[in-house]
Amino acid sequence: MSEDVSKRFWAFVDASGDCWEWTGGRQSRGYGHFSVTRDVRHLAHRFAYEDLVGPIPEGFQIDHLCRNVLCVNPDHLEAVTQQENIARSNGLGVVNAAKTHCPYGHPYDEANTYWRGKKRTCRECRRKQLPSPRPPKSCKVCGASFRAPGPALCCSDECRKVADRQRAAARAAKKPPRRRGRTLVTEWLVEPDLDRLRPKS
């Protein structure tokens, strides 16, 4: 790459700290991007790696060792495979892959794990047909914790009746008052002086 492009790139970098922060444009995911030309755009950390370290091997990605996606310090960047990059992240897939037991406490071992594509399920739970555990709900009336399927909002029939009365009262408060009959609005009118208007004989 030309020296002019390199100078223009590093003019957008704040190297005052341990992480060299990119101060130029950003993508929606937070990564910095740099326009080499009007039609050619590079991710900032990949451009910095290629400029100071060398070409990125084909199929490799640049991992931020500092976990700061705006950092372009080559000491904080490493070329790794996509699989290694995902394994180092803290995404939902990585968190689930690190789990050793199902939500009911059964181990995810070779004998107790059923694979369907890339999704694993517990064989013991499948045999017992246990539903997926849901977090307990909080009663809208008394605040007690309870478990119930569906959109249940109350822990007992008594609380449900109280909630029904509260909803009915709220609806009644929002309704305008019911009119009975026709309300006549009278205005006091000043009667004209008819004697003054009559022609004089």
Rank of each mutant, 00 (worst) to 15 (best):
S2F: 09
E3D: 13
V5M: 01
V5P: 00
V5I: 04
V5G: 00
V5K: 00
F9I: 15
F9H: 11
A11Q: 15
A15V: 13
S16E: 08
G17D: 11
W22L: 00
T23F: 07
G24V: 06
G24H: 06
G25Y: 03
R26C: 04
Q27K: 13
R29W: 06
G30A: 10
G30R: 10
G32D: 04
H33C: 04
S35K: 14
V40P: 03
V40Q: 12
A44K: 03
A44Q: 00
H45I: 01
F47W: 14
F47Q: 02
A48Q: 05
D51V: 09
D51G: 03
L52W: 03
G54P: 04
P55Q: 07
P55L: 07
I56W: 08
P57D: 02
G59T: 11
Q61P: 00
I62K: 05
I62A: 03
D63N: 15
L65N: 10
R67S: 09
R67T: 05
N68E: 15
L70K: 06
L70T: 03
N73M: 06
E78F: 11
T81M: 11
E84G: 11
E84V: 13
N85D: 10
N85A: 14
N85W: 12
A87M: 13
R88A: 10
R88S: 07
S89L: 07
N90S: 15
G91N: 15
G91S: 13
V95G: 01
A97Y: 10
A98S: 14
K99G: 09
K99C: 07
H101V: 09
Y104H: 15
G105I: 12
P107D: 08
A111R: 14
N112C: 13
W115Q: 02
K118M: 11
K119R: 12
T121S: 14
C122Q: 03
C122S: 04
E124G: 04
C125A: 05
R127V: 11
L130A: 05
P131E: 14
P131G: 09
R134T: 15
P135W: 05
P136Y: 14
C139H: 00
V141E: 05
A144Q: 13
S145K: 13
R147I: 12
P149E: 14
G150D: 08
G150A: 08
P151V: 14
A152G: 13
L153Q: 12
C155T: 06
S156Q: 15
R160P: 02
K161T: 01
K161S: 03
R165L: 10
R165K: 11
Q166G: 02
A168P: 01
A169L: 08
P177C: 02
P177D: 06
P177V: 01
R179S: 04
R179G: 02
R180A: 15
L184M: 08
W188A: 01
W188C: 00
L189R: 13
E191A: 11
P192E: 11
D193H: 05
L194C: 03
L194G: 05
D195I: 04
R196Q: 06
R198G: 09
R198H: 08
K200R: 15
S201G: 04
